[in-house]
Design a protein around this nucleic acid. Structure first.
Lengths: 210, 210
DNA sequence: TCTAAATATGAGTAATCCTCATATTTGCAA
DNA sequence: TTGCAAATATGAGGATTACTCATATTTAGA
């Protein structure tokens, strides 16, 4: 891993400006991201101020801009890290699937994991929703759904070699999107209602998949 | 209708600041909203500048702030108008439903109408997505889903008097949300894919409803 | 016609993003 | 070790923009 943000950056306007190569700067970039996360958690995405991020991280404004081209790049990096973790989680979940029943369990587990992460870290909700306003970040999000869908589709093809691959691809994309949407909705309503909604969406997604 | 924005304003921070009572000011407020719409269509929500809205509408900055407390109030008013139109459309669609088959047709028609409006007016996509960043507007959106769900639930109770009312309420809410989500997703991808996605979501929503 | 409320104005204030010229530190080759 | 180029760090300040407010004008109705 050459890029310490943990996220690919080539051609990505929402990502970091340049890669910190020295240990000192890598640590500082981490402090910047941690500071941004803390501030979003305390005051929301809207109230994120570059000057406060710098102060909290104990660096100067200039250093902030040395590694992030603009404000949305910080939020973008946080979202991408989250998505990357999700992708790993999905890849793990799909690895051992060899039957429809496995698929059912794996998918169900995925959604639960996502949901619990969101519940445990409400800051992700603010980060995630804050990202929706930005066209570039929205597109990145969509691309991520597709990547995840491709992962699931690959598994589907394994357990259903006779089905139309194109249809499986579409099903997987919809299922992933349903899962994501379920969580966005679920964390916007009271807990009990959210639990019920996640279950309902999970059933729908599984129905689409299988 | 006392409020010329066409939207309720009491206690709504995202709405207009004060109600223009005279004909002159009503027309000016309309010009402001039209200018904002045009600017969003041309440059996106991010690039919306209050000074440009005022200039385009042919009014002063001060006049803008006379009727809108802040920038998000303008976008909020546009979103609410759109939602209000949607609510009327849903109410109309549900009016004549007396059987599951009616319901199927009505719901299908609703989604199609929404979808076509979005396709015909791409500016609504920018307005809608731009609103997602704002917590207050997000909550308003959610409340709207609930209101629409309640409308549909009422119809469901009529054609299924023996079912659990609470379950119908939940089903209707999910169906409405699926419909909205389908359109948001559909207008973010190529046309052919969007058409297919809308159909898939429509089937899901109907399965949930009936 | 007269007056109070409604409406209109736009220069100015405050907040904030981001740049850039300059200074310091680091890694490494000689 | 020493010297140097690249990487990193700094923060004052330029530029933009949301929003205010004291003042001027217009409207509706008595």
């Amino acid at each position: 891993m050459e890029n310490p943000t943990g996220v690919a950056e080539a051609g990505n306007a929402a990502g970091p400006r340049k890669t910190p190569t020295q240990k000192r700067s890598r640590e500082r970039v981490e402090r910047m991201l941690a500071a941004a996360t803390a501030l979003i958690a305390e005051q929301g995405s809207d109230a994120l101020r570059m000057s406060e991020v710098a102060e909290r991280a104990g660096v100067s404004i200039g250093s902030l801009y040395q590694f992030f081209p603009d404000k949305s790049a910080i939020v973008g990096t946080l979202v991408e890290r989250y998505n990357e973790a999700g992708r790993r989680c999905i890849a793990d979940g799909m690895a051992d699937v060899t039957s429809e029943d496995d698929m059912r369990r794996a998918f169900s587990a995925l959604i639960d994991i996502y949901y619990r992460i969101f519940l445990a870290e409400p800051v992700m909700r603010d980060i995630w929703f804050g990202a929706q306003a930005d066209k570039a970040l929205r597109d990145a999000q969509l691309a991520d759904s597709r990547r995840n869908g491709a992962l699931v589709a690959k598994t589907l093809r394994r357990i259903r070699p006779d089905a139309d691959p194109q249809a499986l691809e579409t099903s997987a994309f919809i299922a992933m999107h349903l899962g994501e949407e379920a969580m966005r909705l679920a964390i916007s309503v009271p807990r009990a209602e959210g639990d019920a909604l996640v279950e309902a969406y999970k059933r729908m997604a599984l129905a689409v998949l299988l």
